[in-house]
Amino acid sequence: MTSRLLLALPYFTVVVLIVLGLAVMLSKRNVVKILMGLSLMESAVNLFLVATGYRHDSVAPIFTNVPAGPMALPTVQALTLTSIVIGVATSAMMLSFAMVIYKKYGTTDIQKIKKLKG
């Protein structure tokens, strides 16, 4: 059992990161802290994508002066690149929203922002 745990260590890291991010998002009231939790979950998903494409003893799929051997899967790495850039764009957008909320209401506590309640 321990050898299997060690073998799939990246996936367990992903699980821990996702649960931590979810806990932060559900328990904190500060908008900025909620965004931190969201970013944590985002990195967990990126790590999961990259870990999916790993082969044992493989090298990165780049042919410049590379040693012979199997190569890691390139498609998931390309998708992760896309995901990271879009994550940066959405994070910038959400942080600006947080700043505007603070400017208008004077607080970032989601319990005190009455107007945004559904």
Binding site: R4, L7, A8, A51
Partner: peptide, 15 residues
Amino acid sequence: AADLPFGDPLRTDMD
């Protein structure tokens, strides 16, 4: 997560 194969992807035709 314990059932996921790490280091040995199932389908690699496209890659």
